[in-house]
Write a protein that binds this DNA or RNA. Structure first.
Lengths: 340, 340
DNA sequence: AAAACCCACGAAAACGTTTTCGTGTTAATA
DNA sequence: TATTAACACGAAAACGTTTTCGTGGGTTTT
């Protein structure tokens, strides 16, 4: 990198002090108009830009927000990033993205790295492995060091901080209720292991809707998908029975899409034989055949909210009480479910 | 943020100089073992971490790579980010992501911002609008300031820098040739306006394959999709004719998916009546019905390559001659095309 | 006993800003 | 004419680190 021009160099050029140059460039009327104009013209010509490290060292602020997410290739998370980026930019901040790849180890490293002066605050969605191990000491360190952070989507209730969450219980409830309202009598569910917070909550909502409708909760219709094994095969075992469900609530769009393909491959029709509803409105839901009815998660909104909460705390009262914002889901009816 | 402990504070605590503390923490044998141990224990207890701004001010290095991409919600770009992130991390760098949202203005702002000391170098994929306007002066500024950068995927040949590209001409050629090899006689193409570099190149490959097969190039079968208008409608106008194509090469997976839905909605079968091949192996291609045959772009590989090129330049010879790496595509056969 | 050497540490510069507090000169006021 | 005010600028501290170059006191060598 070319050595950039500094105040010192300009000062030398004009035979004045550094302070004079600094003030001139800030257009301080402490300096004579003539001198100001000459220095400004010179600085402009040489494209002077203050050294950002020097500024940051002085201000102890980076104007950068750090984001740690489990996976960037999930449509939902990329939407969140977009939202974070937009809100951050509007408020004069930039965004640094780190990926945990669902690894506890990598999440800790990223958090530690970002907390170590790279950013003013962070936005984190917790990795599955971290939720499984229930090891949150890296967040405790943030609290000890008084570095503001907000948890979003995949949160942990016991951590004292700002949070932005989807109302997953309600989302699960509404999705299931919609299936029941459109005629389903036996609703199956494709979910994650219980340690995945959002999967668990959606299941709670699912069970609530089933019970409210006076239907029996059949544990054999709740499949906790093991991502390590063949997913289609696991789903197939639910469909390949006499008493297969007549509707399926999938906890994400991928499971929904695989379910649809599995149903179709067995010669059955979606939604007539088995209706399917997903979660997260990604590209797959839009372009699958049939297109998939789903619970929209509004990731973009969530990202904006989270970023704004963080900047609010950064710029106003750092010790304000913590709040939790709930972003509600909304039903997007498409072709994979029956009409009311 | 809690005021962090500094060398000065430790020095005061022990009644020694700052240099002694600094050296002790670096375990320099200039300092007596006893003093070293006492200081290290103290620093450790108070969780001392050097102030990163001070370090950066001193070293004039950030160990951060900036990335500017048009859209993060494109699966291809999120794959690239993953690759960049992994390669960067392996080599001790972090990644800062900025989105241009296909806007020329925002791209310029992001590049200027990142170049202004936030990062050691950048990775950019050019926004459509920039390609359309052909205004690349922000890159010229990077060159003038000698800030290393590498362009990837959406590049501009006239800019002097390192590049990583897909062999789009060959990809377009191979995709088209595969359609012809599996029996197509009239191959249509869904592409972008010509100013989108990658779309243009894929079209060149398409035409080459058509000509080589001794088929006529029918301009009316080449649809330059206007993203502002209803895409399905535009595609429909190509299918809704007596002499509709018997195969379609779509320049991305979204157009491919929409084409499939459009064909199906007209009561025709994919691939028997019209075969469809896409570009980019995203989730849509995997989960559409039928699943979509496509040219894999290997975004992850591309990201890793680009990041490594950048770090290589940063860490070794900054004035080495520029190179262009070509990442080849590969055909992923699925169900939207006929078998050979 | 003089010369050389080692040890353990400190002073200070450097990185580039911003900002407070002078200070010397000139012009306006009493 | 003496006092004050305005003006235009400079010195220096502060942000936190690293590193070079001393230096004083003690120990070992000839």
């Amino acid at each position: 990198m070319k050595p950039k021009i500094t105040l010192k160099a300009i000062a030398k050029e004009f035979g004045v002090s550094i302070s004079t140059v600094s003030k001139s460039l800030k257009n301080s009327n402490e300096i004579s108009l003539e001198m100001r104009e000459r220095i400004q013209a010179f600085a402009n010509y040489y494209n002077y830009r203050p050294n950002s490290f020097a500024i940051k060292l002085r201000n102890q602020k980076t104007l950068v927000l750090g984001v740690v997410i489990p996976e960037i290739t999930h449509h939902f998370f990329s939407k969140v990033i977009s939202g974070v980026e937009q809100a951050a930019n509007q408020r004069g901040y930039n965004v640094m993205v780190c990926l945990s790849n669902e690894s506890h180890q990598k999440e800790m490293m990223n958090v530690a790295m970002l907390a170590n002066g790279s950013v003013d605050g962070l936005l984190v969605s917790i990795a599955n492995e971290t939720q499984n191990k229930r090891d949150f000491k890296h967040f405790q360190e943030l609290i000890d060091e008084e570095i503001p952070f907000v948890l979003f989507d995949r949160v942990e209730d016991t951590i004292a901080c700002d949070k932005v969450v989807i109302d997953d219980v309600k989302g699960g409830y509404n999705a299931t209720k919609y299936l029941i309202d459109t005629g389903a009598k036996r609703v199956g569910m494709l979910t994650t292991p219980d340690y995945v917070d959002v999967g668990y909550k959606r299941k709670v909502g699912y069970e609530k809707a089933i019970e409210e409708a006076g239907l029996p909760v059949d544990e054999s219709l709740i499949l906790k998908v093991n991502k390590e094994k063949d997913i289609a095969e696991q789903i197939n075992s639910m469909i390949d029975r006499e008493d297969h469900p007549d509707a399926i609530f999938a906890v994400n769009e991928i499971y929904a899409a695989i379910a649809i393909k599995t149903v179709q491959s067995r010669g059955m029709n979606v939604p007539n034989d088995i209706a399917v509803i997903g979660f997260t409105d990604g590209l797959v839901s839009q372009y699958a055949s049939p297109s998939i009815t789903t619970m929209e998660q509004h990731g973009f909104t969530m990202g904006m909210q989270a970023a704004n909460m963080l900047v609010d705390r950064l710029e106003s009262d750092v010790h304000a009480p913590y709040t939790t914002k709930v972003v509600s889901t909304s039903l997007k009816v498409r072709a994979s479910t029956k009409k009311e």
